[in-house]
Design a protein around this nucleic acid. Structure first.
Length: 269
DNA sequence: CGGCATGTTGCGCA
DNA sequence: TTGCGCAACATGCC
């Protein structure tokens, strides 16, 4: 469940469960998702959690009166959940953090099937966090500044949007859906984009992010529900009619990633 | 069995 | 030095 909207929902959940709580016990079921070591994470037992923040796809958990900071990334299949009190280990549960707040016990678990996600314990902010570009939801997008940055590059806009130093939190689906909304070809070269096109992309990102958060609020990410109708406008809908002009949606590999687009609405210039 | 999957990183090579 | 393509990571599903 890993792009900006899903991570924002994860942050809201973690903030509700953890803020102000004291860590009673940490269990690491699979040390491969924990850096630098399982020991470093279990050692936060006794600490009090101050707040949970997000930038892009990264989560940051600050402890109260403690130098240590936790960073978490959901990778491709990471997910945070909670249960009140104890419960059996879930199939893909990798880490469990038992906390207590106002006498109430809660078990916060990190699940990750493919284990591309990470829970990092650090003494200061890690580079993956500090080097992130502006967050479209938290900071908004300065279209003029973005336009300037893009003019200095020569990749396709689709590849550039996935660069977390340019914009934090944009993943493959978000890039695809936003470019469709903006009517910009994913193959467009960044140095050829007009300011108007960059503004349209910024609006497309905002609309896609807000709509996705609203749609997924209170439920599991729609794309994990097999059999459900597609929650996407064009992602993974090769051969289906474009929602705007009915042209058949095409698929191409750009920057090594599956890319969907409408050859009519998003005509390359 | 082969191909593909919402992400990131590291390596070889130009 | 920089950038690019691609494999690797680990697992499931079609």
């Amino acid at each position: 469940m890993p792009e900006l909207p899903e991570v924002e929902l994860a942050r809201r959940g973690l903030a509700r469960w953890l803020a102000g709580a004291t860590v009673e016990h940490v269990r690491v079921w699979d040390a491969r998702v924990v850096k630098p070591s399982a020991k470093a994470l279990t050692a936060i037992g006794g600490a009090r959690i101050a707040r949970v923040e997000r930038r892009g796809k990264w989560l940051r958990v600050a402890l109260a009166n403690d130098e240590r900071v936790l960073f978490a990334h959901l990778g491709m299949t990471g997910e945070w959940m909670q249960t009140k009190g104890d419960a059996p280990r879930e199939r893909f549960e990798r880490v469990r953090i038992d906390v207590r707040r106002n006498g109430r016990a809660r078990s916060v678990r990190y699940l990750d099937m493919r284990m591309f996600g990470r829970v990092v314990v650090a003494k200061e902010d890690i580079a993956s966090w500090t080097e992130l570009g502006p967050d479209p939801l938290a900071d908004g997008i300065d279209a003029r500044a973005l336009h300037e940055k893009l003019r200095a590059r020569k990749k396709t806009i689709k590849e550039a949007m996935l660069d977390q130093r340019l914009l934090a939190g944009v993943g493959n689906i978000l890039a695809i859906e936003s470019l469709w909304r903006a009517r910009v070809s994913p193959r467009a070269r960044t140095n050829a984009l007009t300011l108007a096109e960059v503004r349209a992309i910024a609006r497309g990102l905002g609309a896609t992010i807000r709509r996705t958060i609203a749609a997924q609020k209170g439920e599991r990410a729609a794309y994990v529900n097999a059999g459900a109708p597609s929650p996407f406008l064009i992602y993974d809908l090769k051969g289906e009619p474009c929602p705007r002009c009915k042209t058949s949606i095409e698929r191409a590999v750009i920057g090594g990633r599956s890319t969907y687009f409408c050859p009519t609405c998003q005509r390359a210039r």
